[in-house]
Design a protein around this nucleic acid. Structure first.
Length: 358
DNA sequence: AAGATAAACAACCGCATATAG
DNA sequence: CCTATATGCGGTTGTTTATCT
């Protein structure tokens, strides 16, 4: 016997909401609230809608103070940063963007940000490994998209425009020189350790937001994502980065309610992302025009081993750099990272880096 | 101008979790 | 503690709009 349906499907209207339905729902909730029972609400106001549908309509469209329209660059940065850190946990990400809904952010990510972030070209329109005749067309297309997004195009392709710029001196010591960013056990370390690398401006914008979180950033581990989902080489290669504190506190305080566990989510997420692209475009054509995306993947997957492949080796953390930030008892389960495994896990991604813009 | 295709957005569905009885 | 039910979440699908050929 299956689960009882939440409503009588036969007598429930589906599809787009009419202005009348919107008005009725809005007026009722503004006057009476939801009454704590969405299932009963549509009957109370005479709407032939499922309670879940009413709830969704209210949350995503009707409730006050919702922002509609284009996302700002700062919002994009926050979404990217948090997605890298915690994966597709849209409700958590949305909680940090006032006026935005999880559905909004999810759609925005899936339709735009993901493509921008990974610099991916659709297979049938461009292979990404741009050659000769295709190059001009791709240039035109990218120029156009760039213009649409930024409002002005300068005729050149900036493949990294959607990814926060690398700092000129992306070393741990340089990061620590950035004013107003918490130092030891800091958020910059957090984001760096999960593979994010950011410009100083970007770090400031993200951290100012993080520091002003409306809610304490308590992100419980996702039960569906565990290290054992990964292949052994990956899990071993990543074991160094386990858990860090998000608020710049002493990470030994593991009972701190602000504790954040990121890497478990970040790694499978990025891994799935890569698999998705590889499957979609064909492995031999899996091309990242954005080298920093490859860097991020390398760093996410392989931690310090990426330094062997990165063009900016000093930007990667070694385990020693990070050791003060993690829970020793957890980390001990994954150390040491075997050198041969580091090499194995880095190879496929290192290759990807060679196919950037020609 | 019309059809084809892609992009963007809205809504639905099913599962997981929370909670009341 | 157990069960039933409501709620929340994330993935997916459907529809509309924009762009291209």
């Amino acid at each position: 016997m299956g689960r009882a349906p939440c409503c009588d499907k036969a007598n429930v209207k589906k599809g787009p909401w009419s202005p009348e339905e919107d008005a009725r729902l809005k007026a009722y909730i503004e006057q009476h609230g939801t009454g704590g029972n969405w299932i009963a609400l549509p009957q109370k106001i005479g709407l032939k809608r499922c309670g879940k549908s009413c709830r969704l309509r209210w949350l995503n469209y009707l409730r006050p103070n919702l922002k509609h329209g284009a996302f700002s660059e700062e919002e994009e940065n926050i979404i990217c940063s948090l997605y890298i850190a915690i994966g597709s946990r849209w409700s958590i990400i949305a909680a940090q963007l006032p006026g935005r809904t999880d559905n909004d952010i999810k759609n925005y990510w899936n339709t735009r940000l993901k493509k921008k972030l990974f610099g991916r070209q659709p297979k049938e329109r461009s292979t990404g490994r741009i050659t000769n005749g295709l190059k001009e067309e791709a240039t035109k297309r990218d120029h156009k998209e760039s213009s649409m997004v930024n409002g002005a195009g300068n005729g050149t392709i900036n493949y990294n425009q959607y990814w926060p710029q690398l700092p000129d001196f992306a070393t741990p010591s340089a990061l620590h020189e950035i004013p107003n960013i918490p130092q030891h056990g800091s958020q910059s370390d957090l984001l760096t350790c999960v593979g994010a690398r950011f410009s100083e401006d970007h770090l400031r914008s993200v951290f100012s937001t993080l520091d002003n979180f409306q809610n304490p950033i308590h992100i419980p581990p996702s039960p569906s994502l565990k290290f054992d989902m990964l292949t052994e080489p990956l899990s071993n290669g990543l074991g160094s980065f386990q858990s860090v504190n998000s608020m710049g506190c002493d990470t030994s305080q593991l009972s701190n309610p602000h504790f954040i566990s990121t890497t478990q989510e970040a790694v499978p997420n990025a891994w799935n992302e890569l698999q998705y692209f590889a499957n979609d475009v064909g492995e031999d054509e899996a091309v990242y025009s954005n080298q920093q995306s490859s860097d991020v993947l390398l760093e996410v997957f392989c931690g310090n081993c990426s330094s062997q492949a990165s063009s900016t080796p000093e930007s990667s953390y070694s385990w020693n750099d990070m050791s003060s930030l993690v829970d020793p008892s957890t980390v001990s389960k994954y150390e040491p990272c075997r050198p041969e495994i580091q090499k194995d896990c880095s190879e496929p991604f290192r290759e990807l880096m060679y196919f950037g813009p020609q």
